[in-house]
Design a protein around this nucleic acid. Structure first.
Length: 406
RNA sequence: GCCCGGAUGGGGUAGCGGGAACCUCUGGGACUGUGGAUCCCAGGCCCCGGGUUCAAAUCCCGGUCCGGGCCCCA
């Protein structure tokens, strides 16, 4: 019986890994250029951590298990909660603000489909300790620059939970309304507001705000304090040269969001269009720590990999071709060339010269270095350019990486 | 959790009640010191379990996995 890969997981072959690593490298470099430093948290946490953040129901969507001590654990379904937990465990006294980034795999027990897997990767950043719109703008700019550097085509939508919350303040059970607003489910929204006996002026305001989309000017007539915050944020984003679209219909029902919320979308994917999401939140006090404002985002790494373009690092690949009687010399030469940063591959199948060259061709090597007995007598080896077919002898003492330039 | 479609050598496909075929691939050889072409030899498959039938890759049921969508999306 063959053992199969678990549902919703993937194997990555070298070609794909090379792209993923290249993408990862771009993300890291940009995050670091903003002063963000990498952190890493455990693959699993007490399931309680995620329940506190997202509610009891998410247990259904998590990989939960009891450890041998009977503790209930969960494979992390996301990284914001663990990072905040880590912050409370050991970083509360570090100079604020803290700038962290992370890149790790996460696990969710969901029905897989395009762009959605049970094991997936998130790249994200959290700026902890500031609640200013300058902090929010920086975080948005970081996500924006990363996606731009990867040549992703996207749309950035920015909203603010405070505005809608203000309008709905005093209305009981407003989470459901917020949820329906986020879903853009107008029909059910109307009936729900009717059921909750929401005053007419509030209903009209909700519907009006929901449809407000566009640039700064849409906020002109919104006379709510929180709108001024969004306005200020928008102004700073102009300085960052970030192109965005305000959308007050983006809300999010969860209580820990405190202000700005934003989402990046790409039309190149299927049903799972969102490639990045984030916002300002206050989780520290939920987890039993001192109230601490923070802003962060998480990029769906797998989705971005599907639609982005990166330059792959090209290292010169050389196959050292040898004969039985020259094999030990070939190893010696291969060793030297590897130290000079070339990729050097040597036969381990006791193959004929023909097969070794054929193999070099199959793996798209750039050069073959033929270590032959006749040439060795003159202290030489042959370098063959596998693209052009050109071949010439060179003294072993003169072997330098410069000879292997495509 | 729900709906639709699918699963045939390592990869891509044909067959859709009665001989499992093709392309590619992998290893070796023709050619024992020179790759890409050609030819030869070898390797390996009907997703799993049950049922119908004289006979199942083929029809039926259940499961697993994949793809698309719904729900969800922290």
């Amino acid at each position: 019986m063959k053992i199969e890969r678990p549902r919703g997981t993937r194997d990555f072959l070298p070609e794909e890994m090379e792209k993923r690593r290249a993408v990862e490298k771009v993300m890291r470099r940009i995050a670091e250029s903003y002063g963000y430093r990498e952190v890493m948290t455990p693959t699993f946490e007490h399931s309680e951590l995620f329940k506190i953040k997202s509610g009891e129901e998410i247990v259904k969507e998590m990989y939960v298990f009891l450890d041998k001590g009977g503790r209930e654990m969960a494979l992390r379904p996301e990284l914001t909660a663990p990072v905040v937990r880590m912050f409370l465990d050991c970083c509360e006294v570090l100079p604020k603000p803290l700038r962290f980034y992370y890149f790790s795999n996460c696990f969710r027990y969901e029905r897989p489909q395009r762009g959605r897997f049970r094991e997936f990767w998130q790249f994200g950043a959290e700026l902890i300790g500031s609640n200013s719109c300058l902090a929010e703008a920086e975080v948005i700019s970081l996500a924006y620059e990363i996606l731009k550097a990867l040549k992703v085509e996207f749309e950035l939508k920015i909203g603010h939970v405070g505005i809608m919350r203000k309008v709905l303040s005093g209305i009981e059970n407003s989470e459901k309304i917020m949820h329906l607003i986020d879903k853009k489910d107008v029909e059910n929204l109307l009936s729900e507001m009717e059921r909750l006996e929401v005053p007419k002026d509030v209903r009209e305001k909700v519907l009006m705000l929901m449809d407000l989309k566009g640039d700064l000017s849409i906020l002109e007539d919104v006379k709510i304090e929180e709108a001024d915050r969004l306005k200020k944020l928008a102004e700073v984003l102009e300085d960052y040269k970030v192109k965005y679209k305000l959308d007050l219909g983006i809300v999010r029902g969860l209580d820990y969001y405190t202000g700005v919320v934003f989402e990046f979308y790409s039309e190149k994917l299927g049903a799972q269009k969102q490639i990045c999401g984030g916002g300002s939140y206050e989780l520290a006090s939920l987890f039993g720590g001192k109230e601490t404002p923070a802003t962060g985002f998480a990029i769906g790494f797998d989705r971005v990999c599907e639609i982005c373009e990166v330059d792959l690092e090209k290292r010169v690949k050389v196959v050292v071709v040898s004969f039985k009687e020259t094999y030990s010399k070939a190893i010696e030469i291969a060793k030297k060339l590897r130290e000079k940063d070339l990729i050097v591959i040597i036969d381990v199948m006791d193959r004929s010269v023909k097969k070794q060259l054929s193999f070099a061709n199959d793996i798209s090597a750039d050069f073959a270095l033929i270590v032959g007995g006749r040439e060795l007598e003159a202290g030489e080896v042959l370098i063959k350019n596998l693209r052009s077919g050109e071949q010439f002898g060179v003294k072993i003492s003169d072997l330098s990486p410069a000879l292997f330039v495509k």
